[in-house]
Structures are given as C-alpha cells and as structure tokens.
C-alpha cells in the first residue's frame, strides 16, 4: 500500500517516539491522538494525515474517532482556553451565568476564540471539584467559587 501524504507538517520527536511506543499496542489510536493534542492544543489535519501513514489506518477512521470524543479539538483553541464546568453542582450554583458573563466580556460565544487569540470558551463536563462550585479553569489554573463580578479581574490577569 502506498500513501500519498502532503508532507507539510513534521511531527515532533516526542510524538514520533510516542507513536513508536504505542504502534503495536491494540486500540492505540485514542492514546496517540491525546499526545498530538497535548502538543498542538488540537489535532491539525496534517498531523492526522501523517498518523494514517504511521499507523496504516484510514483517515476516515481517525476523524470518526476525533469527532466522537468531545475532548478532541479540530480547531486551534485560544492561548488560554477557559473551561467552565457545567456539572450539576456548578450548574445549580450558577455555571451558566459564568458562561454568559464570559461571553459578554470577551465578545465571543462558546467554542469560539477571542479576536486576540488569547481566550476560547468551552463548557465542559464535571471536573470533579463540586465542593468549589461554580468552577472554571483558565489555561489549566483552577478557579473555584467564582463570582460573576470577579471575572473581569481574573481575565485581566491573563491579558498581561
């Protein structure tokens, strides 16, 4: 079999090592996609194509998996992705208001990126910090018991 891959992307040695480590383990695709996303923040099409070559699997399969799992992103997120927990506890304690206010402040909707490329908003499933509800994370940093009024100030910290 011969593949025709546009060589516009070079996967990093880390990814290639990871692929090598996982290549012969059955059911490896999701673990490999996690690694790609860890590096790029999303899974670029070129990287997915490259994987089809390395793993000898069809691209349609890769996309079938990528689009099934909500954790995988096909578009580049903001530099500081904002994840607002929409678990039940956070919802009851106003998670939705947090999203509305963020949308307001950033002028973007959920799953969109702010114009300066700094932020993107995501509503995520329970992140398991229900005691701190409502919870959000920005670039991995957790903010618990968030109040609507604090948001502008929190965002400002990341803008610097």
């Amino acid at each position: 079999m011969k593949e025709h891959i546009d060589q516009t992307i070079k996967l990093s040695p880390e990814i290639l090592n990871h692929v090598r480590e996982w290549k012969d383990k059955p059911g490896n695709l999701i673990m490999i996609l996690h690694k790609v996303q860890e590096e790029y923040g999303y899974v670029p099409r070129e990287a997915a194509l490259k994987l089809t070559e390395l793993l000898d699997i069809p691209l349609a399969k890769v996309y079938g998996v990528l689009t099934f799992y909500h954790l995988f992103k096909l578009k580049k997120p903001g530099k500081y992705p904002i994840q607002v927990c929409m678990g039940t506890a956070c919802y009851l304690k106003g998670g939705e208001d947090i999203i509305r206010e963020l949308e307001n402040l950033l002028g973007i909707g959920v799953n969109q990126i702010s114009e300066d490329g700094l932020f993107s908003i995501e509503a995520v499933r329970c992140i398991g910090c229900c005691g701190l509800a409502p919870v959000m994370t920005i670039g991995g940093e957790v903010f618990g018991k968030v109040k609507r009024e604090q948001l502008a100030e929190i965002l400002a910290r990341f803008k610097e």
């Binding site: 059911g27 999701i30 673990m31 799992y69 909500h70």
Partner: peptide, 9 residues
C-alpha cells in the same frame, strides 16, 4: 495498562 477516555459519557 492505563487507557484514557476522551470526553464521552
């Protein structure tokens, strides 16, 4: 072995 999910309830 540990395998990760990817956000599917």
């Amino acid at each position: 072995e540990i395998r990760y999910g990817a956000g599917a309830f």
